[in-house]
Each structure stands twice: as structure tokens, then as C-alpha cells.
């Protein structure tokens, strides 16, 4: 991958509900090291744009590319390990937090990779959580704890591009600061980038290098 090539390219994306276009003509490039803040009035379809970027919903218009290749060229499961979407209200499977983290490596796409407890514990430390967090039942986690589980679950497979949908919406001030710190460290690695949404404009200004306003594409 050349240094000038953007990691993620969205080209002329559009989404309609029934007859009405929610947004159309959405194009952007995401360069390595960049954090793009996605802003829009609520209900404008930020989540739908993120779902479109990982093809959870079919693209009604336009295309996305990661490292120059379309999702079909990557094959969809591989593409989604490269461009990973984290929804605002993350889901968990039955079992403990650790079992949820381990379960990811059962997916064929991760081949021989396996769960790394040291890496997780060092992240937990940065987030101010004790290692006991790993033994909690995932189904009984609070909203904020579930967001932390989702973050660890995604980060452990090291996706180059993260799409974070309100990743700190259920966290308190201190935990939010710690998550922002962890993400900013993570972004320091070569060829990593993220798209970030937040209802908190101050946070967007803090974490994002530039903003994309979906309201401009209605």
C-alpha cells in the first residue's frame, strides 16, 4: 500500500427509506492515522451510514473500498475484519466476558490466531478496570461495561479501520477519558484510522481531526 493511498474510500453513497433519500452523494477518503468525526442531527442516519460502510445493509448507491479493493474483492468476512463496525448498543453472547472474547477466534477468518490475555489485561489496566472484569457474566453487564467489552472484542483482532458509533455514550467522564486515551494510542500505529460519532460536540472536537456533516448530503 503506497503512503498516499487512503485506507477507506466511500464513493457517492446514498441511502433511501421508501421514496425519501436520507442522504446521497456521500464521499470521503480516510487516510492512515486519521480520525473522522461523523456529525449530523439525530435521526439523520449516522448509524445507517456506518452499517453501509461495512455492508451490513446493501449499498443502494455508490461503493466503498478498503486499501483500493472492494469488499467483494476482499470477500465480505475478511473486509469486515479490516473495517470493523462497533454499534452503539453492543450485543454479547452467553457466558463470561472472557468467553465472549475467546469466541471471536473460533471464526474461520481468524485462522490460527488466538486469544491473548496479556494484551487484554494491559488494556483493562489502561481503562481502569480490574482483571476480574473478564469473569463477569456478559449478559449482566451495564451499558458502559458492554461498550468496553465490545471495544476489547474488536481491538484484540487489530482491525485497521474502526467505525465507532457513540462508543462512550454509556460511560462516565473518567471512563470516557480513558477510552479516548486508549483509542488515541491505538491510532498511533501505522495504517490505522477511525470514524467516530458522538452526540457530544466537545468530544468530537477533541478526538476528530476533521468532520463530515451528513446533513450536507440530504
Amino acid at each position: 500500500m503506497g503512503p498516499s493511498q487512503p485506507l477507506l474510500v466511500a464513493n457517492n453513497l446514498g441511502r433511501c427509506l421508501g421514496e425519501r433519500w436520507l442522504w446521497r452523494g456521500v464521499s470521503f477518503d480516510l487516510a492512515a492515522g486519521e480520525c473522522l468525526g461523523l456529525v449530523a442531527p439525530s435521526g439523520a442516519g449516522k448509524t445507517l451510514l456506518m452499517r453501509n460502510l461495512v455492508l451490513l445493509d446493501p449499498c443502494q448507491q455508490g461503493e466503498v473500498r478498503f486499501a483500493g479493493k472492494t469488499p467483494a474483492e476482499w470477500t465480505m468476512p475478511t473486509y469486515r475484519t479490516q473495517v470493523m463496525y462497533m454499534p452503539q448498543r453492543p450485543a454479547a453472547l452467553d457466558g463470561t466476558v472472557q468467553e465472549n472474547l475467546e469466541r471471536v477466534f473460533e471464526l474461520a477468518v481468524y485462522g490460527q490466531q488466538h486469544f491473548d490475555p496479556d494484551k487484554i489485561e494491559s488494556w483493562l489496566q489502561q481503562l481502569g478496570r480490574s482483571p476480574d472484569f473478564l469473569h463477569l457474566q456478559a449478559a449482566r453487564l451495564s451499558g458502559g461495561e458492554a461498550q468496553i467489552l465490545a471495544l476489547l472484542r474488536g481491538l484484540q483482532v487489530n482491525p485497521p479501520v474502526l467505525l465507532l458509533d457513540e462508543p462512550t455514550a454509556s460511560l462516565d467522564g473518567d471512563a470516557t477519558t480513558r477510552v479516548e486515551g486508549l483509542l488515541s494510542n491505538w491510532l498511533q500505529q501505522p495504517d490505522h484510522a477511525c470514524v467516530f460519532t458522538s452526540h457530544d460536540t466537545a468530544q468530537i472536537h477533541r478526538v476528530a481531526d476533521r468532520q463530515l456533516n451528513l446533513g450536507d448530503f440530504t
Binding site: T81, A91, L107
Partner: peptide, 10 residues
């Protein structure tokens, strides 16, 4: 189901 899909599940 969608959580698994976003993690790269078939």
C-alpha cells in the same frame, strides 16, 4: 447475529 457478522463471521 450482526455482532458476529461485523467481527467477520460468515
Amino acid at each position: 447475529i450482526e455482532m458476529l457478522l461485523t467481527l467477520g463471521a460468515t
